[in-house]
Nucleic acid binder design. Structure first.
Lengths: 208, 208, 208, 208
DNA sequence: CATGAATGAGCATTCATTCAT
DNA sequence: AATGAATGAATGCTCATTCAT
């Protein structure tokens, strides 16, 4: 590749990348406003202020768009959470940070979380397997691995007692996710209080 | 109403009810196979072996069908779980029974659970509010109330320590639900083991 | 045919005739409320308080129902108008009576007139010729013939001047019909005043 | 707007406008051939040689298409008639011109007239009020106003006698319209003869 | 890179009609 | 005589996608 071509393609992919970003943001907005079922390319295009065809130009498919968006959302949330977890030292502190950061991210980016839920619970692979039954190569991968690692380390270093790390990790994730899915709990307990309570709950559950 | 009329209308509504049941079963199957987004009336009719128009004859709407199905599924699971909970006496036993029965129901009726999830996470009210952000008048209502009641009674009778019952109830439901949504945990831990571990986890978390 | 059979079939056709009458009345109501396009058998049945199938039982076809209704309406209006025309003697008086009775009938039976208009301007023969372009065997037949006869007699007896009787008859009918089709004129001139004016107009137009 | 933009948008809307025109012409043809009731988008599309979806692309609705067509037809006929009326001077001449031009237009554009009748007598507002009971903002508006104005001026200037202008105008329009609706008169009297007779009829009826 | 035009398949729904009861 | 159940075709409409410009 010549230098000129590099420049050219560099510029093009910059523009293209900006456009893709714009489309994905419009998709997030659309998913929040009308949900996955009604989130047609036309609706997304309308919110992006562009033509429908342009989405097809930048993404090979509707599912391609949704996959890219999903990866994007997963990556952002994982980055946010892991960054806060890695600042701490002990397993107990890491666990607290994990719970706190997970909930905090959902609180600061509720549109991102809703979009993620809409995709995970609606999108399916070409052979009709739903994403929520796959959960490989997704957030769960990275974040669940981290969580398992924290629990395992805590057990090895005597901070935590004995329990099945997979079950515990799964429970923690379920408890975190449930807060966002259920509005009834959000009406009764605010995010900060929920976070504190959850940390206490799992400190008791994990302690030696 | 004369006896004859009773017979006649009884038979008629029996036929109609049987057909509605058949359609709802086909809908469960369809939701499992291809998901809510693709679950068109045509697809459901195909699986029921009937014409599309007949669904419209028995249900005023597609949303009417889905709402009836949702209520049906919620009712069945609640009946199953509560029946097992009510057999026990102490709060601790009730909590164990609740967790165990919830997981057992999902284990014996995985298609029902998937269908329920598909509806809750995809259906929306006419003003576009997703069902999963409503969560009133749903399973959560009855079962969550029961769970909260168990926790509160346990605290009053000194079986459980102090914690926010709403947060704890929510965490328990999240931990239970996560097992069905995540196939990675099901590959590593079987239902019975998961149930035992989860009971231990929340016994520790709730104990005085 | 034995006497018994006669009785029986007489009773049957009496019941049947009553039912047909009921269905046609429901059809009139339906045509007034929602118009020909939306006047489905289901809508008519709903207003008659019977099942859809019963209409199909009593009328071979939807067009059969509409044809019977049309004939019925035409007959009723013709009877009403001709009865009043025949009471008078001179051509001038007959013409006045014709105009007055035509408008009076529309005034006393506006639902009948609307139903008639809805059918005439919407129904079509199997080969797609619209009824309003046929106008044979219809009201126009009987009433137009009468009108032409009145005009012709008037000319022969020197009451009227020379003019093309077909054109004059057509104009009179158009002027009468327009009053019911156009709400703007009904808002400005009431039925009685319109009738008087119209009579004067055509007295001037026809006089020797 | 720059010159380029003008050109571009001009060309684009030209293509779109041509397509809309084509669709409306196909609709006229369809209304003539099979009538309003059967004039589905599919039938119109078939006659236009395009896909059904393209009609939905260019018109928001079926009623939108019909409304645009109606306005189009009304405008064309009004332009034709008024242009001929405005060429004359006296009220008597204007009245003759009005009658003659109205019939002539129907004679040269019989498909347009039929299409107009089909729409007016079948289309309904969203609240089910038929167009023929509205008759505001329609042909009647412009042409009826002109007709009333002619009659009023004729009376003021002593050309015409005393009569209710609304009733006379309504009668004239009824007499004109009836010629097109009734094939029996068309079989007996040709357009030109009818026109002459009608002019004479209303000259007598209006004269001082 | 971007658009608007266009397609054809699919959607939920309604329809006239038939038929067993 | 009358019903409710059932069908299959047709309706208006939206969709993801393609393509010339």
């Amino acid at each position: 590749m010549t230098e000129e071509q590099t420049k050219a393609s560099g510029k093009q992919s910059f523009i293209a990348e900006a456009r893709r970003e714009q489309i994905m943001n419009a998709a997030i907005q659309t998913l929040n406003e009308i949900g996955y079922v009604k989130a047609s390319l036309a609706q997304i295009a309308k919110r992006a202020g562009i033509s429908t065809g342009l989405i097809s130009y930048h993404f090979s498919d509707k599912s391609d768009l949704m996959n890219h968006l999903l990866m994007n959302l997963v990556e952002k949330s994982a980055t946010y959470i892991l960054e806060r977890v890695h600042r701490t030292e002990t397993a107990t502190a890491k666990l607290s940070a994990f719970i706190d950061a997970s909930l905090a991210y959902q609180g600061t980016q509720p549109m991102h979380f809703t979009a993620l839920v809409e995709i995970v619970f609606n999108a399916r692979t070409p052979d009709n397997t739903p994403y929520y039954k796959l959960e490989d190569e997704l957030e769960e991968d990275i974040l669940l691995c981290e969580l398992i690692q924290i629990l395992r380390t805590g057990q090895e270093q005597g901070e935590f007692g004995t329990f099945n790390v997979y079950v515990m990790a799964n429970s923690i994730q379920g408890a975190i996710g449930e807060y966002m899915s259920s509005s009834s709990i959000r009406d009764k307990v605010d995010l900060e209080a929920y976070s504190k309570e959850l940390i206490q709950t799992f400190e008791k559950a994990t302690k030696a």
